[in-house]
Computed example of a mutant assay.
Amino acid sequence: MSDFLSDYTSGGKAGSNTSSGTGPAPKRRHRIAFNAPVILAFTALSFAAMLSNYLTGGIANRLLFITRHGSMLNPLMWLRMFTYVLGHSSFEHWLSNFLIILIVGPMIEEKYGSRRTLVLILVTTFATAAVNNLLFHTGLIGASGVAFALILLSSFASYQEGTVPATLILVAVLYIGREVVNGLTADSISQFAHIVGGFIGCAAGFALNQAKAHDAK
């Protein structure tokens, strides 16, 4: 009995832990999770484009990152209809767009997948450029349209088949309504790009959720 008590008081428990191979729990090492590769790559490419524009004194934007009305026979015309979304007129312009994209984009990519997120970005980019070049003679630069598409799409987070989310109505009224009003006044930012991006985000929200509901059946 005394041997048992001495073993218990002198660390018998520790001995049992040692014999079972257990010890102090190892410290967990936190690592960076690249949870949204498309959004992260988009952000990195756009930052690189902005940096190249600063280093070239604005030449990069004029050559590659602004799309405007022109000859469709020019190969650069087609290239700029995609690359303009990477360019921005200033760091503040870039920051205002990518703060939204980095907040909303990962949620969209995790919900719908990287491939669909990439398709949404490409479709929004091209559609906005195409309509701008057909209807206007002003240059278009920046990811504003993509940011608005992601904002509108995010309002479908709690979408249920056969319903229209109240969040979608509020976002549409507040964001698109504001852009329509602002578009009637002179503005250095293309309000039109915001509106097109918003409508594409709405269409994508309905289409993606309908497809998801169909797959679940």
Rank of each mutant, 00 (worst) to 15 (best):
N209Q: 11
D7F: 15
T124A: 05
V119M: 11
R29T: 15
I32Y: 13
A143K: 01
I151E: 02
F156M: 10
E92W: 04
L64N: 05
W94D: 05
G139M: 10
V146Q: 14
L99V: 01
L153E: 06
A130C: 07
F4D: 13
A157Y: 02
D3N: 11
E179N: 11
S96V: 01
N209D: 08
H214A: 15
W78M: 08
G183F: 09
L63A: 10
D215C: 02
F206G: 08
R115P: 14
N133L: 07
A204G: 05
G177M: 00
G198T: 01
A41M: 12
A36N: 11
T138C: 02
L55D: 00
P75N: 08
L40S: 12
M107S: 13
L76G: 14
Q160H: 13
L134T: 03
F192H: 12
S144Q: 09
L73W: 06
L63P: 01
T167C: 02
A33T: 15
L102Q: 10
P75I: 03
S46R: 03
G177V: 00
H194F: 06
S158I: 04
S96P: 00
Q210P: 00
H69F: 04
V131K: 08
L45D: 00
I108T: 11
L5V: 04
I189R: 11
I176G: 01
Y175L: 14
S20C: 03
H30S: 04
A127P: 08
G183Y: 07
A36Y: 05
Y8D: 08
F98S: 02
Y54V: 03
L122E: 12
L150W: 05
I195M: 11
Q210T: 09
A60M: 06
N182F: 11
A14W: 07
S89R: 14
A149M: 15
A172N: 12
G162K: 11
L95V: 04
T18E: 10
K27M: 10
L168A: 07
E92M: 08
V196Y: 10
F199N: 03
N132I: 00
F47R: 02
I103P: 00
V181I: 15
R115N: 12
T163M: 12
L153D: 03
I66H: 13
V196S: 06
A149L: 14
Q160D: 12
I66C: 14
S16R: 13
E109G: 09
Y112E: 12
F156G: 09
T43M: 10
G205L: 05
S6P: 00
F199I: 15
V104K: 04
D187M: 10
F126V: 06
I101R: 12
L153G: 01
R29P: 01
G15D: 09
G198P: 08
G105W: 00
A129Q: 02
A203N: 06
E92G: 09
L99I: 01
S90A: 14
M1R: 04
L170F: 08
F98R: 01
F126D: 10
E110K: 15
A14D: 02
T18N: 07
F82P: 04
R62W: 02
P106I: 09
A204F: 15
S2N: 07
L79I: 09
A216W: 00
R29S: 13
H93T: 13
S188E: 03
I66F: 15
L51K: 02
